[in-house]
Simulated scan of single mutants.
Amino acid sequence: MIQKNAHLPNIDRWRQWKEFGLLEAKQSLIESYLPLVEYVSNRLSVGLPKNVSKDDLSSYGIMGLIDAIEKFDYKRGLQFETYASWRIRGAIIDGLRQGDWVPRSVREKSKKIEEAYQKLEQQYLRSVTDSEISAYLQVSEAEFQQMVQEIAVTTVCSIDDPIREEDSETRLSLLVDEKAKNPEYKVNEFYLKETLSKAIERLTEKERTVVSLFYYEELSLSEIAEVMNLSPSRISQLHSKAILRLRGSLGRFKTQLFQES
């Protein structure tokens, strides 16, 4: 029966699954969208510790894909790939968090640097330098660079996380998506766009380039390293600093922007 469904257009398989509950159609949909799991897990695997296996990432991702297929409303005319991608990503991240793969000390360092960027850039109204951050944290620049390298694995895709569980939109997508939004979200999204735009303006030129190539052009960090003629570890550092700056800028608007309606 799966073989029979495999040639059907996706809309027909969605109809068979959603309206008639045919498990063969659901299985066929899962199989047809499995490449999404591989794509998302490969991107999330960049910079992760070696003890995190790709098989584990794929397993978490498949659970996210199944969840997406069960909850997706095909009649709304939305793109399933976008919806499923963040569901898959979320399932992988949840699985990693449950496994406690990032030491608490690394999370604490990430939080301290994020708060430092938030406070200093709010104070100076510009992009702060590594030396200014180091002085604020009372560490040497070499120690600061080491801290950034240690927390690099915690920042991958954080700007790709959805704003709310019910939404398929991410923080970054709001900068480029010109489609009309629901009226109740327009004010919050306007301020979010303004905040993100200003935060991105404060990134250094190299940080902006990394963010653009990773999130807009969807290159891997190793591919970005080749384009920019820098080492992968340097690209990882630039990515981490960019995300920490952006999260710091968004942090003070969190209550205003992300409160439940």
Rank of each mutant, 00 (worst) to 15 (best):
N188P: 03
K193M: 10
L44Q: 01
L34S: 12
A91R: 10
A6D: 14
Y83K: 07
I113Q: 08
E150S: 06
S236P: 02
D67L: 03
I88E: 03
P162W: 03
V139P: 10
E218K: 09
S105C: 13
L8S: 03
L175K: 01
A225W: 07
Q145Y: 10
Y216H: 04
E141I: 04
L120F: 05
V227A: 12
T195P: 00
L238D: 01
V106S: 12
F20G: 00
Q98W: 09
Q79I: 14
E194L: 09
M63Q: 12
T82V: 07
Q98D: 15
R97Q: 14
Y124M: 13
M63S: 11
V176D: 05
S59Y: 12
L172K: 06
V153R: 01
A135V: 08
S233D: 15
S127P: 08
K186P: 07
E150Q: 12
S231L: 11
E31P: 04
Q256D: 10
N5G: 05
K18V: 06
I151M: 12
M147V: 05
E207V: 04
S233V: 13
K109C: 08
L29N: 01
L36Y: 04
G64V: 11
I151K: 00
D167Q: 04
G248Q: 06
L57P: 00
R43E: 14
K179A: 05
Y117V: 03
V40E: 15
A180T: 07
A225Q: 09
V227G: 09
G77P: 08
P35I: 02
K186C: 06
L137T: 12
E178M: 06
M1Y: 09
K18M: 08
L196V: 01
R234K: 14
N42P: 02
V52F: 03
G61L: 01
L29Y: 01
S131A: 13
E217Q: 10
D161A: 03
R97N: 15
Q27H: 12
W101E: 15
L57G: 00
R104P: 14
N51Q: 13
I113Y: 04
L65Y: 02
A225F: 07
D73V: 03
P183N: 07
L137A: 06
E31A: 08
E223D: 14
E217M: 09
N42R: 15
D73G: 06
F80A: 03
K179D: 11
E108R: 07
E178F: 09
S158M: 09
L219E: 10
A6V: 07
A135H: 13
L8Y: 10
S158A: 08
E121V: 04
K50V: 14
L238N: 04
E260A: 03
K71M: 13
S110I: 06
D56N: 11
